[in-house]
C-alpha cells in the first residue's frame, strides 16, 4: 500500500540534515510552504543552501532562517524584495554566499535535474556577467550559454490539495516553482491545505505523486 501521509510538520522535516541543499517553492508569499519552513526553523538544521526565487521578506519563512544564521548560501533570481531585511543584513555583512541565477534559467536548471538531463543551452544571459566563465556556443547565429542541472537534497512544496498517493493540485499563481522543484529533489515534502483520504481527480493532478515522498496537512494560508 502507498500512503505518504505524515501526521505533523516536525516529523515531515526530521530527515533534513546540516549542510543540506533545500528547494523552497513559492514566489513572494504565494505558494510558500510556510508550515514546513516554521518546522525547519524549530528543527535547527544549519549550514543550509536555500534554492528559491526570492530570499524571504519580513520575519517569517526563509527570512527567519537567515535571521537565525541557519543559511550558508542562497541560490535565487531576486533577493531584493520589499522587506528582505534579513537577507540584506546578512549579505552586507558578507555572512552569506549569493548565487544569482536568471529566473527562467533557475526554473530550467531545476527542470533539467528532475528530468534526468545533463544541462541545456540558453540564450539568457549570453554576453553578460552571469555568463562569465561558462561554456558558450553559437547556433544559427545566436549565442547560447551552457547551464548545468540544479538538483537538491530536499524540496519543500506547498499545494492546495493532495491525497495519500502524493498527488498534488495547486491554486492560482501558487503553482509557480512548486511542481518543478518536486521533481528535482532526492526527498520532496509537500504541505497541502487540504489532505484527502480520497484520490484527487486524475484530470486535476498537476504534480503526480511519484515526485512526492511525504505529504502533510497545513490548513493555514499566508
Amino acid at each position: 500500500m502507498i500512503d505518504k501521509r505524515i501526521g505533523d510538520l516536525a516529523t515531515a522535516v526530521a530527515p533534513i540534515f546540516d549542510g543540506a541543499a533545500i528547494m523552497v517553492g513559492g514566489f513572494g508569499n504565494s505558494g510558500i510552504p510556510a508550515g514546513l519552513l516554521n518546522a525547519l526553523l524549530d528543527h535547527g538544521a544549519r549550514e543550509l543552501t536555500i534554492i528559491s526565487n526570492n530570499a524571504g521578506a519580513g520575519e517569517d519563512g526563509i527570512s527567519s532562517l537567515l535571521r537565525e544564521k541557519r543559511v550558508r548560501k542562497v541560490i535565487c533570481s531576486y533577493p531584493r524584495s520589499p522587506g528582505s531585511i534579513w537577507f540584506e543584513r546578512r549579505y552586507e555583512a558578507g555572512e552569506i554566499e549569493l548565487e544569482i541565477v536568471p529566473q527562467g534559467t533557475l526554473a530550467e536548471r531545476i527542470r533539467a535535474a528532475g528530468a534526468g538531463l545533463g544541462g541545456f543551452l540558453t540564450p539568457t544571459g549570453y554576453g553578460t556577467l552571469l555568463a562569465a566563465g561558462k561554456e558558450t556556443r553559437e547556433i544559427d547565429g545566436v549565442g547560447y550559454v551552457f547551464e548545468p542541472p540544479l538538483p537538491a537534497d530536499f524540496a519543500l512544496i506547498r499545494a492546495e490539495a493532495g491525497d495519500r498517493w502524493g498527488n498534488l493540485r495547486y491554486h492560482v499563481t501558487a503553482r509557480n516553482f512548486n511542481p518543478v522543484m518536486a521533481t528535482a529533489a532526492r526527498h520532496s515534502i509537500a504541505e497541502v491545505r487540504h489532505l484527502s483520504g480520497e484520490p484527487l481527480e486524475p484530470d486535476s493532478v498537476i504534480t503526480p505523486g511519484i515526485f512526492v515522498d511525504s505529504i502533510v496537512e497545513y490548513g493555514i494560508r499566508p
Binding site: F27, A107, H171, T173, R175, F177
Partner: peptide, 28 residues
C-alpha cells in the same frame, strides 16, 4: 483579494476572461 493570486510585483491581481495558469518552466 485572493492571497495566492499575485503578479510579479507581488501585488494582488485578478484574472480576465480567457486567462490561463501555469508553472514557471512554461511561463519562461
Amino acid at each position: 483579494e485572493d492571497p495566492e493570486l499575485i503578479d510579479a510585483s507581488k501585488k494582488f491581481v485578478t484574472m480576465v476572461p480567457g486567462a490561463a495558469l501555469f508553472d514557471h518552466p512554461l511561463a519562461f
